[in-house]
């Protein structure tokens, strides 16, 4: 037994060398921080000696739960992620079907190349563009004024924040996200379409009965993954789009953690908020996966 292992290692052991660097990385930057979340249960100050650590149990979780921010940041986060999940999945699917079904090579080529582009715009430039277009003198307001409507202060209206965030987000990522669906559409056996044509199926029917069922597995896997990140709204863009007028609707969990934790150095409290977030995400993921396994054959595990 032992000799077998030795023999295996001598022959294939070098393979393990390949994963050592990334393993070290995972341990230091992923697993040690996971262990590090225990500061959420302490009153932690930087540079604190081990013997001065005060364990406070659920104090920080309770104080987050009881603070007025709890409802606000959770609600704000969900008011962005839930519509994003729905619209952000539906539009790319629609787009992929459009590309796939288009008989005009020109429109298809132009459409694909153009819609991929925004994916490569950096967050900073992207938010600047949003501000520019939605400003009082921006294109959209100029258009509204031209049509005889009142100008709207888009960026000053807190209630519009989540709509703006979701719509612009779809604008940026719809082309890129459609690639995966498009790829699975192109891998559909062409005989299916031929057979359908011979039997006289219309284009709409082909979309309904061939295209949609064939991308459904990919859609489900993507939905499960997204559900697992329902509470995870990246700070990069939200943070840049925040201003003092929309903050009541734009403060989300991640920006809240960043501001409280890194800006105000309330490490323990922020770690507690972050941990709360991660745990909810994990449950959502498990829930979505279980549900997916029940209603269809597709699931992550």
């Amino acid at each position: 037994m032992f000799n077998d292992t030795l023999k295996y290692l001598r022959r294939k052991g070098a393979l393990y060398l390949f994963i050592i660097p990334s393993m070290v990385y995972m341990v230091i930057f992923k697993y040690i921080p996971m262990y590090g979340v225990r500061i959420a249960f302490m009153d932690y100050l930087p540079g604190m000696k081990a013997d001065r650590i005060k364990w406070v149990g659920m104090k920080h979780f309770i104080s987050f739960w009881e603070s007025i921010y709890f409802k606000r940041v959770v609600f704000n986060t969900l008011s962005i992620t839930v519509p994003s999940l729905i619209v952000g999945t539906a539009i790319p699917i629609l787009l992929a079907i459009l590309f796939h079904q288009s008989t005009s090579k020109m429109l298809k080529g132009l459409g694909q190349n153009l819609t991929y582009l925004p994916h490569f715009i950096s967050t900073v430039v992207f938010v600047t563009m949003i501000n520019l277009f939605l400003s009082k003198e921006g294109v959209i307001n100029s258009f509204l004024a031209f049509m005889g409507f009142e100008k709207i202060q888009f960026l000053a209206k807190a209630n519009l924040f989540s709509s703006i965030y979701v719509i612009t987000g779809v604008w940026k990522s719809m082309g890129w996200n459609s690639i995966m669906y498009y790829a699975s559409l192109t891998s559909v056996n062409p005989e299916l379409y031929e057979a359908a044509s011979i039997d006289g199926a219309s284009k709409m029917q082909k979309i309904r009965y061939i295209d949609i069922p064939s991308i459904l597995p990919v859609v489900i896997v993507m939905l499960i993954l997204s559900t697992g990140h329902l509470m995870d709204l990246g700070y990069e863009r939200v943070y840049l789009m925040q201003n003092s007028l929309n903050i009541s609707k734009s403060e989300v969990i991640s920006t809240f953690v960043y501001k409280r934790g890194i800006v105000n150095m309330k490490y323990s409290f922020s770690a507690a908020v972050g941990l709360f977030n991660s745990v909810i995400n994990l449950f959502l993921l498990i829930g979505a996966n279980t549900l997916a396994r029940k209603v269809s054959e597709e699931s992550l595990w």
């Binding site: 995972m26 921080p33 262990y35 930087p46 953690v257």
Partner: peptide, 19 residues
């Protein structure tokens, strides 16, 4: 799975920052 797990659960911003 050691790798995959980190996609679903993370220590979050603050512990990473402290590391």
């Amino acid at each position: 799975w050691i790798y995959l797990f980190t996609m679903f659960f993370s220590g979050g911003l603050i512990p990473t920052f402290l590391v």
